[in-house]
Design a protein around this nucleic acid. Structure first.
Length: 140
DNA sequence: GCCAACGTTGGC
DNA sequence: GCCAACGTTGGC
């Protein structure tokens, strides 16, 4: 299993909206960046991801799971753009803020900081475990 | 509101 | 294929 980071502006698509979709999940649509798209094409069913609120909150608020493999983005008529579906797994007991992540030496190389504009990015297993611990949240 | 980072576009 | 111009993202 691999780990990923999904970023969303909460005034466009929030964790609460993701939770409301339940087991059905939701397309992670609207991605118009090749690197982000390529990351989604590499995802497998059951892969886990952090759900990060950008701009407002600037914190990791929950864990999602990939529940549909990469497929054409239904919001655009353009074969270039694919996306996966994700469903909420559990919220973070304590959200982990960007400031906390920046302050953690072991997270200096995390994609959230190193490629701050990339909205879908890989996370290492070590980073996954650390951030979950910081959020007092079950990493499984 | 500003600005750094960086991806995209289009002229050459 | 290069590079300047421009647009977008996202933190501050």
């Amino acid at each position: 299993m691999r780990y990923w980071l999904f970023k969303s502006e909460p005034n466009k698509w929030s964790w609460d909206q993701q939770v409301a979709r339940g087991e059905a999940g939701e397309e992670w649509d609207g991605i118009r960046n090749y690197q982000a798209r390529n990351n989604m094409r590499e995802m497998a069913l059951g892969d886990r991801g952090f759900f990060y609120h950008s701009n407002i909150g600037k914190e990791i608020v929950g864990i999602v799971e990939v529940c549909a493999l990469s497929h054409p983005d239904s919001t655009i008529e353009d074969a270039r753009w694919d996306c996966v579906d994700v469903k909420a797994v559990r919220p973070f007991a304590v959200p982990v803020t960007l400031a906390q992540i920046k302050a953690a030496p072991a997270l200096a190389e995390i994609s959230l900081i190193r490629q701050s504009r990339l909205s879908v990015a890989p996370i290492t297993e070590e980073e996954w475990g650390l951030v979950c611990a910081m959020g007092e949240t079950d990493p499984s």
